[in-house]
Structures are given as C-alpha cells and as structure tokens.
Design a protein around this nucleic acid. Structure first.
Length: 549
RNA sequence: GCGCCAGUAGCUCAGCUGGAUAGAGCAACGGCCUUCUAAGCCGUAGGUCAGAGGUUCGAAUCCUCUCUGGCGCGCCA
C-alpha cells in the first residue's frame, strides 16, 4: 500500500524536477476524510522549488491522477499542502488477495536485509526465580526479536548467565546453610545471602539426591559442588519460568566460560594493545573518559580479581567478533548508569557505539487495588513472575507489558488486570480470531467451500465496513516495518486493537455466510485475510491465538 | 550535588524522527441477543497535553528553566 504511493510520488517528483531519491514521508491520516494515505512532501519542498506548497502539491496530484487512475480513485490537495490518496476498491481487493496468496511471505519485509542482530535480554542472575521486572524484559525481548526476524533481520536471542563471581558463591553458601539446617546442623546464612523458599527447595533437592554426604563439611570443602549444583537448579527454575511465559532463547552465554576460554584476558590485552589500559593504585583501569564516560573504570582490582565490567567488555568483544552488525541489550532501568561505559567500550573496541543499542526497561511496580503489594516473605524480596502469571495469565501479562513503551514506568495492578480480563484488549483481539474460526467451522458444517479463497472474486466487497477492514490489513506491513525500524513492538498491539476494532463491527453488521454464494466467498476470503494478519501479529508478540474462547 | 527516564481524560496508557479538529481501553451513563461466539455492537459524556518562556508557517512532539515522581552515580555484582 505504502509502496504504491511511494512509487507514484517518486515518479511525480522527478517529473516536476524535484529530487526523487530522498526518503519520502507517508503517513496514515487520523481522519478518514483525508484519504487512505497522506504525504506532507510538498510542504518540505516549498523552499527548494520556490513555490507555494499547495502549488507543488497540485502539480504532483495532477501528474499522479493522469497516470495511476486504476490505483487511486482520488488524489487531492488539502490543508496547507497535504497530498491525500484514496485507493480504488479494485486495488484494495487485489491487495487482500495478495495476503491470502503469499501468506507470511507477504509480510516478511526486506528492511532488515539480512543484517545480523543479537538481542540479549532477561539475563537475570541465576540466583532465584524470575521476578515481574524480568518478565517485562522477557516480553519485550521476545517480541522485538520476532519483530526483527519478521522484518528480514537475522536474529540471535541470547541470555547472558552471570555464573561467576560473588553472587553465585553466595547462592551456593545459602543453599549449603539450608542443607545443613535440614540435617539439624546450624550453619549461619551469609549476611546478604538468599533467603527465599526456593533456596530451601534447592537444599531439599540436594538432600534427596545426595543424602547426608555433606553433613558436617565446611563450606570451603563443599563449595564448588554446592555452587555448581545450586546454579544448575536455579537455571532450571528460570528456564521453567521462561517456558511458562512462552519465551525462548537461541543461545546461553556463560560468564564463567568467557573466563575459561580466555576471553576476558583477550579483551583486556586487546584494549591494552591500544593503550587504553593503565595502572593506578595497584589496579588496572580502562580509559573510559577518552570515550565520553564520566570517569575511568577499573577492570582488574588491586586484589587481582576482575570486575564485572571486565567480563562485560569481553562479552561485548565476543559479540562484535561474532559478526553481529547490531547488538541490542535489554536492561533494567536501574542499570542506566552503565550505558555510557558500555558505549565507551564499543568505541574502544572498534565498531563504535552506533552498533550497540541499549533498551532500558523501566521499573514495574505491582499494585493490588491501588495499594503496593507486600513483598512475599516466601519468595524473598521481589514479586515472582510466576505468581503474576498464575493470577492473570501469561497472555494478559505479556499484553500489558507490550502495550507500553519500554521506557515508561509501569504500574501493574493485579485487580485492574483481572477485573479487565473480561473486557481486556487482549481478549478483544483473540476473540476476533476465535470468531473467524467459528465462522469457518460453521461454513464447513453447512457445506460451504472454503478452499481456493486466494482466487476469490472480491468485487462484491463494496461496503465501507469491508473496505475499511481491507485498508487496515494492507497497512499491516507498513506498521510492521515501522515498528521494526523503531525497535518498538508495542506498535503492533495498538495496530491489533484497531484491526479487531474494525472486524467486530463488520461481524455484527454483515453476515458472512449468506444465500449469495459470490458474496459469501468474498467475505470468507476477507475473514481469512484478517485471521492471517491477526495470527501473524500475535505470533510476533508471542501471544496465543486460540480458535475457541 | 550531578545524571537518566517519565508527567497527556476519573484510572491505565498510545500519540514524541514537528503537520490537519489530541486518541484507545477501562470506569460512568443510555440502548441492542429467534440467524456465523454479547469476551460483542450502537450511542453519550469526559482535556489548561505538569507550569512558564523560546524556536517555527505550524509544538503534546524540539530548546531553556521550574515543579512533581521513579531510578542511578563503588577497586559491588
């Protein structure tokens, strides 16, 4: 749809002697009386051509009207110089059939052009179950990855496992303490150790498998066993949470492995070779200030241990060396202070900060009827994603996350989420799909043929409800591409609400299965096209599309 | 103190790479089920886009300041 207008505009621009090679802005007007698509292009050309915007627009409109009468029923100039395009029913009919003909292929676009992108998300410390904030990152990362893939990028979804350092050691020690407790020994839980039920569960599971083998051992003796085993159990917990949430990864990168394979040393040597590492106070520092950070940063501490930052440098060097053109990191907003130093790293490593995009996911506060939810003592100091999923469902939870920009704070009210569930926008969309499936079931019951719809004659579709629906379907690709380029999957949730908002009135006011065979076939084809788009978009968002509700 | 994100209808949020009269859902109010699913449809009402300046033909959108809320400023991870 957009392509047709763009092509017409480029032809017209070169005909009137304007530059036709630049980007052309095309938008969907808010007001239906302003046509199907509009362009403000003439306003921008006023200076260059030294003519009034309206005069330029008139020239363009005249040129296009003469040449593309079968595509547009109207090309008009409006307001200060907008060009408004209205498509012919014939063009719309052909477009709708195109969706049926090519299916998914119709939407897969070339804006990504095979660019290799890595999306790293969740990456929660493997020290306990995922909490609600991780869920937001998971929903975004999953949807964004799918979206980029649909737009023609080559995507790798990665989870970075922080399995080295103090936190996992603390985890092992916490589990060890519970294990000893189960055996009647008192062993102090480390001061900032982990205290949730899942720690006791892990201890019990070790006891079940290993018996009292480690009874009375000191933690020093048993540390590597307890750390590794606890780590494995926690990763299982996380993977289960992710599976329940319907989010999957292509790759799991272990921090420990980065050390073991020498990647950290390699990265520091690499920077040192560029003269970007120096020593001071017994520590080794990276010259982050040279790349716009507030201060230089320690990579090796005076005690000889590396910092977390050192692993991150190695990790990003590995990403760069793996040939990703773009690296997207999805982090919680509490890490935003970390962005300048990672951008500095990307500059220092060579490719430059423009190849790194950090998406900060703002905090989620959980409310119940307007009141902050008390942190459950059972789970530790956070709200587990699992509990929220059990209460309101994975689809609704994802949808709530995905109807907001990632950088706006979100209050997640359980009462609202549940109270809405009967009138929830996600059901509104799924219901449209279920209704269509129901029509097809009915059609097959009464013996109406539903095959070969991609060759149907759509000319009986002349009602405004029908044409509006088709226009919306044809704008899907444009929406998808725009969302992908902006890295904003939430645009699809709004698109879907609008599409469903056109389908339901159509359904209410027009019977699909009628006495008129030609009309019936045409409407079935329209319904099928709607279903194809809804399923595709829900698929991108990682939300289910049930056939019955 | 410095920095990042935000402030749009009663509530939750879109709209922000400047464009036409500021949108949706929920909540409120009034209607609609003998025909493919009423988780639906039709209608009414609801706004000083936090505030003040500035840039522009045009500002919710860009710039400056102020106010409010959240978060961050370790040889922690």
């Amino acid at each position: 749809m957009k392509r047709a207008v763009e092509k017409a505009l480029r032809d017209a621009l070169s005909a009137i002697g304007a530059d036709a090679s630049g980007p052309i802005e095309i938008q969907i007007p808010k007001d239906e009386t302003h046509g199907d698509l509009a362009s403000p292009i003439a306003m921008g050309l006023a200076k260059e051509l030294r003519k009034s915007p309206r005069a330029i627009a008139e020239d363009i409109a005249a040129h296009i009207s003469e040449r593309a009468a079968d595509t547009f029923t109207r090309v008009e100039v409006a307001g200060p110089g907008f060009l408004n395009f209205t498509f012919s029913p014939d063009f719309l009919h052909k477009g709708a059939l195109g969706i049926l003909n090519k299916g998914k292929e119709h939407f897969s676009s070339d804006v990504g052009a095979g660019t290799r992108v890595q999306v790293e998300f969740v990456s929660a410390n493997p020290t306990g179950p995922l909490h609600l904030g991780h869920g937001r990152g998971a929903a975004l990362g999953c949807a964004l990855s799918n979206l980029l893939e649909a737009a023609g990028y080559e995507v790798v979804r990665e989870y970075y496992v922080n399995d080295a350092g103090r936190q996992v050691s603390l985890l092992g020690q916490s589990v060890f303490a519970r294990y000893q407790e189960l055996l009647g020994n008192s062993y102090p839980i480390p001061e900032d150790g982990y205290k949730g039920d899942y720690i006791s569960d892990a201890a019990q599971s070790i006891l079940d498998k290993e018996g009292d083998k480690h009874k009375g051992s000191s933690f020093e003796d048993a540390s590597s066993f307890f750390i590794d085993t606890s780590l494995g159990l926690m990763l299982d917990v996380i993977k289960e949470d992710l599976a329940d949430f319907g989010v999957s990864f292509d790759s799991w990168q272990s921090e420990r492995a980065l050390h073991d394979e020498g990647a950290v040393k390699h990265a520091i040597d690499f920077l040192a070779g560029k003269g970007l590492i120096y020593e001071e106070g017994g520590a080794r520092w990276f010259r982050a200030e040279d790349f716009g950070d507030d201060k230089n940063r320690v990579v090796i501490k005076a005690d000889g241990n590396h910092t977390y930052f050192a692993s991150d440098i190695a990790y990003h060097l590995k990403k760069v060396e793996s040939g990703f053109t773009e690296v997207i990191d999805i982090w919680g907003a509490d890490h935003h202070g970390y962005v300048p130093r990672m951008e500095a790293v990307m500059d220092a490593l060579g490719p430059g900060r423009e190849h790194l995009k950090v998406l900060l996911v703002q905090m989620v506060s959980l409310l119940r009827g307007g009141e902050p939810v008390q942190m459950s003592k059972r789970s530790g100091n956070f709200v587990p994603l699992k509990e929220v999923m059990e209460e309101v469902g994975a689809d609704t939870t994802k949808f709530i996350f995905l109807t907001r920009r990632h950088d706006s704070q979100l209050s997640f009210d359980l009462e609202v989420a549940k109270a809405e569930s009967s009138e929830n926008p996600v059901f509104y969309i799924q219901y449209a799909n279920a209704r269509i499936s129901s029509i097809f079931r009915k059609a097959s019951d009464v013996g109406v043929l539903t095959n070969n719809l991609e060759n149907a004659d759509l000319s009986p579709l002349t009602d405004n409800d029908e044409l509006r629906l088709i226009r919306k379907l044809l704008s899907y690709r444009m929406t998808l591409e725009g969302a992908a380029l902006a890295r904003e999957p939430h645009r699809l949730t709004f698109y879907l609400q609008e599409l469903a908002g056109l389908f339901h009135p159509f359904y209410k006011h027009h019977r699909v299965l009628t006495e008129d065979a030609g009309l019936t076939t045409a409407r079935l084809a329209l319904c099928e096209a709607v279903r194809v788009v809804i399923r595709h978009a829900l698929g991108v968002l990682g939300i289910s599309a049930p056939d019955r509700m």
